[in-house]
């Protein structure tokens, strides 16, 4: 059975302490329980959680959705946001865990990456080096979430175009964000193996409505940053 691996990189730096970190935890829990009722996700999804503050840690190695249990997230009092280190660790796990397709055997589906941070990378040099290396580690989709007023969107642009900015870090806006993420992951597991058609190549039609295979729109509270 081919897997759809999903890596979740979570900022656990000091500013996440309190409500934000609890909200992320609840969000993760809600997401996994809704994915467990989704037959497409259950068949393919594997999850891993990597956290980063002063150091990057693998909290949950790549685990089958069914076996996954939400880790206990903790944010130390003050700590930097070592996103560069987190990416370095992610690539190491990628080399270790992802089964690549070869001419002999089919590998995993391309993984998804979700990065959530409330600040900007503290280890800028390493971060830039890792961004340059990203091309060697193909992902089907990278979603970045800049949470809270202090979050910087600019550095995340180096990772992906899909950036969601949460204005506030309360449970409600986190809740909506995670619900959106579950839908996205659910869709991704439904669409593994779909033939991608470039935008300009879509079915010629008198376009009444967007095709049924598109994502539902993200919740209103989330601004899309271009």
């Amino acid at each position: 059975m081919r897997r759809l691996p999903i890596y979740i990189l979570l900022d656990t730096s000091g500013s996440m302490r309190g409500e934000p970190i609890e909200a992320v935890k609840v969000g993760l829990q809600t997401m996994t329980s809704s994915l467990r009722r989704d037959p497409y996700a259950l068949e393919t999804v594997w999850l891993s959680v990597i956290t980063f503050d002063l150091e990057a840690k693998v909290l949950v190695p790549l685990t089958e959705l069914e076996q996954f249990s939400t880790p206990n997230l903790r944010a130390p009092e003050t700590s930097p946001t070592n996103l560069g280190e987190a990416l370095e660790l992610l690539f190491k796990r990628y080399r270790l865990e992802i089964k690549k397709s070869t001419l002999q055997e089919k590998g995993d589906w391309l993984p998804l990456l979700l990065v959530m941070t409330d600040g900007k990378p503290s280890d800028t040099q390493l971060f830039n080096r890792m961004v340059a290396e990203l091309k060697n580690y193909p992902f089907a989709k990278i979603i970045a979430c800049a949470a809270g007023a202090k979050a910087k969107v600019e550095p995340l642009k180096a990772l992906t175009d899909e950036i969601y900015a949460l204005d506030t870090m309360d449970a409600a806006s986190f809740g909506k964000f995670w619900a959106w993420v579950s839908t996205t992951v659910g869709r991704a597991s439904l669409e593994v193996g779909s033939i991608r058609i470039k935008e300009e190549e879509k079915v010629p039609e008198p376009s009444h409505e967007p095709p049924d295979d598109e994502l539902p729109p993200p919740p209103e509270e989330i601004r899309i940053v271009f």
Partner: peptide, 19 residues
């Protein structure tokens, strides 16, 4: 005309290859 190409696993080979 159709809105969608179909769902992966069920799209007929001639549709997949013609795209």
């Amino acid at each position: 005309p159709p809105d969608v190409l179909g769902t992966p696993d069920f799209i007929a080979p001639e549709v997949v290859s013609s795209f």
